[in-house]
Amino acid sequence: MKFLKNVFSQLHTFLLWALVSFLVWSWIFTFVNDAPAAQKVTVYCNVPAIEDTALAVKLEEHLPEGLKMIQVHSFDYVMFDTGTIDQGDIFILPQSAIEDYDGQFSPIAGQEGTLIYDPATGQGAAMSYIIYGDEPYYLFLGAGSVHLEDGLAQQIAQLLLTLP
């Protein structure tokens, strides 16, 4: 009883500590699990659902030399910070959203984008990790990607396209 009374008398302190703990460790883990843009490839997926961690781990199994990590994010990141679109390396977008980002992407293999999911056949890449919607999805390379010249963005994109 005395214990509970003591806890309730300082409830604000306990809650504040929980909040500080959450914020500090979230920041530290974000910092620790990141790498400079030159050492990572970032994939942004505008899809209904994605197993981002599993996909990143799968892509990291074949990590090319010069890269430390692959990051896979849902497109919410782009919505929260529009600056990320300039730094992303690979984007997966539904056909209906492509116009919104006109000029932001770099051509891959001479095309504006590569079809990654075709709803007509139900066939697509990385379907073990990505749930696509009812329209065609395309893969793009970011125009601002630092891995266009070294070919690492194209390499990861090709790897992504071959995943089951």
């Binding site: 703990s21 460790w25 530290i28 883990f29 620790v32 699990n33 990143a56 781990v57």
Partner: peptide, 21 residues
Amino acid sequence: AAMASTGTAKQMELSAIVVST
């Protein structure tokens, strides 16, 4: 934090938050 990798980062982060709290 030191042991965290891409695959384990979320679990490790949650564990660190729980331990710290």
